[in-house]
Each structure stands twice: as structure tokens, then as C-alpha cells.
């Protein structure tokens, strides 16, 4: 643990913008303050405007935030499959601008991962070599996502999971080897150890949900888990770095 407490962390799940559901400060200054305090070298973030209102506007705002923070914050682009028109163009534009991955929010935007539009999008992203993250909080969704991404070669990361659907997620992950899992929803005792025992340490990625959630509520369970220092380093740094740099 002593070794991993000093390594520079890479976080796959952070937020910037205005949070409409509670009075929580998601300014870039707050996020970077948390990053400095807990030795986070890089954070992948989405802009709330892109998630909750207009992806095009929000993705533009994410670029500005990233520029103002000199490489500390890496933006993830998002599109909303409910808005069919211009999806492919938006994806291509963001790829040209240098976005290295996408995020999807079916729960927050009220659509289903088995939707035909999302399947088309996933195939399109795969053709462009763009990995993506997708929320998977409900029973049945991991199976649907597995079917969508089964033939793809890009890495896909499940976020926002819960103990209730971990058994299903692990079953799907054993079949679909490009599926990865964020640590954020793994909150029960032994969860991290269980995932590593089932699918190995190379497919677990640290995500905090900060600043919406307390950063330490995700970091401490990982640092205090029974995983080896090598496994913790993979989860905290190397796995996400490999995905982003691929």
C-alpha cells in the first residue's frame, strides 16, 4: 500500500460544469484542487452541459476547459443517441479535434443500450478506433451492452455499476474480453478482489465520480483492498493509460 499511495493516479470518471441535481461545485478549480490533494496526474472528464443538455455545446466547453488546464484534464466527448441527426458528424469532428474517447449516459438520458442507434454508434466509434465508457447500473444492461460490443476491437469501460448487477457483469466480461470495469460502483467488501480474481487486474480501471462524489470514497477502498501493489498500479494508472494511448 505504501508504494501505491505515492503513484500518480489516472481517473476515468470526473465531471466539470453545472450540476443541476444538487448544489455541488463542479468547477475545474474544484476538480483540479482534488487532483492535487490526492496526487491525480490526469483525469478524464465530461462536461455536464454535454450530458444533460446539448452535446455539441458541451463538447466545445470541454475543449475550452481542457485547454485552460494544460493537459491535466482530458475531455471525453459524448453524444446523445436520442438526437439522431448529425451524430456521425459530431463524432468525426471530435476525433479530428483530438478527443481520445467517448462516454455514454443511457440512465441519465433515458435510453436503452440495446437501441439500434447506439449499436450503429458503437460500430462507428470502433471503425474510428475510439474507445468508450458507458453507464451500466441496471440488471440486464451488461448483457445488452455485451451483445452490442461483442464484435468490436476497441476497449469499452462499464461505469456506474452496482453490487446488484456485478454477477451479470462478470459473466459478460468473461465472454467479451474488450470490456473493462470502473471501480466507482464496487463498494461492497471484497468486490475489487472478486473482480480481479474473475477477470484479472488488467480490466479494472479507477474511477472516482469526483467532484460529484467524495474522491476518497473510491480511493480508500482500493488502497486498502487485498490486491497486490502491482494490481493496484494497473488499476490506478496503467490500464486507463493503455486505453487512452492506444
Amino acid at each position: 500500500m505504501a508504494t501505491t499511495e505515492r503513484i500518480p493516479i489516472v481517473d476515468c470518471d470526473t465531471w466539470v460544469g453545472f450540476y443541476p441535481f444538487q448544489d455541488i461545485d463542479l468547477t475545474p478549480a474544484t476538480l483540479t484542487g482534488i487532483m492535487r490533494r490526492f496526487n491525480v496526474a490526469r483525469a478524464i472528464f465530461v462536461h455536464t452541459t454535454a450530458v444533460f443538455f446539448d452535446p455539441k455545446v458541451g463538447n466545445d466547453m470541454a475543449i475550452m476547459v481542457a485547454r485552460e488546464n494544460g493537459g491535466l484534464l482530458l475531455p471525453a466527448a459524448t453524444v446523445n443517441p436520442l438526437f439522431y441527426r448529425g451524430l456521425a458528424k459530431e463524432v468525426e469532428k471530435r476525433k479530428e479535434q483530438g478527443f481520445r474517447l467517448f462516454r455514454f449516459f443511457p440512465r441519465l438520458q433515458s435510453w436503452l443500450p440495446r437501441s439500434a442507434v447506439f449499436k450503429d454508434l458503437a460500430n462507428f466509434l470502433n471503425g474510428l478506433g475510439l474507445p468508450f465508457l458507458i453507464e451500466c447500473p441496471f440488471s440486464g444492461w451488461a448483457t445488452d451492452i455485451g451483445q452490442v460490443v461483442a464484435g468490436l476491437s476497441v476497449p469499452v469501460v462499464l461505469t456506474g455499476t452496482a453490487e446488484d448487477n456485478l454477477a451479470e457483469i462478470l459473466s459478460v466480461m468473461k465472454e467479451i474480453t474488450n470490456l473493462h470495469l470502473s471501480t466507482q460502483g464496487l463498494d461492497h467488501p471484497g468486490a475489487l478482489e472478486e473482480v480481479v480474481a474473475e477477470v484479472g487486474p488488467g480490466r479494472l480501471i479507477f474511477g472516482s465520480g469526483a467532484p460529484i462524489h467524495y474522491f476518497q470514497s473510491s480511493l480508500m477502498p482500493l488502497l486498502h483492498s487485498d490486491l497486490s501493489d502491482e494490481a493496484k498500479t494497473l488499476v490506478l494508472v496503467e490500464n486507463l493509460r493503455r486505453i487512452v494511448q492506444a
Binding site: 463498494d187 467524495y214 476518497q216 480511493l219 477502498p221
Partner: peptide, 17 residues
């Protein structure tokens, strides 16, 4: 919240607050 959630989750929150 033990043993539904790990104790370090709440402890981490309180130490960070």
C-alpha cells in the same frame, strides 16, 4: 454501512470532508 458497503468508503468521505 458494513457489511453492505466497505467501511473505508464512509471513512474516506469523513477524512476528506
Amino acid at each position: 454501512g458494513m457489511t453492505k458497503v466497505h467501511i473505508s468508503r464512509a471513512l474516506g468521505m469523513i477524512l476528506e470532508a
